[in-house]
Amino acid sequence: MAITIAQVEQVARLAKLQFDSEEKKRMAEQLNLIVDYVEKLNELDTSEVAPTAHILNLTNVLREDSVEPSLSPEEVLQNAPRQNNSHFSVPRVIKEL
């Protein structure tokens, strides 16, 4: 399975990353090495093995439904680059209403 430049561009777009053409080429090469390595698994017959959802052999790690104290709004917002009226302020995401 070969990773194409187009696939690198698609993944970069979804991850909001920008690469120049040299970087895209390098990414494709490196990703191909990783995928080739994982391809090794195809040498095994896993048709009788259920998909592994988690590597720990645990189920049902649950908590009781009880409320614990919240952070204060000041703490919540302390790392926000911009805030307004106790809200996070981000660049507008809707073009028009």
Binding site: N84, N85, H87, F88, S89, V90, R92, I94
Partner: peptide, 12 residues
């Protein structure tokens, strides 16, 4: 009314 025209506010 307090939202500026270039921003979106978020309450989590």
């Amino acid at each position: 009314s307090f939202v500026k025209s270039d921003e979106t506010l978020v309450d989590v």
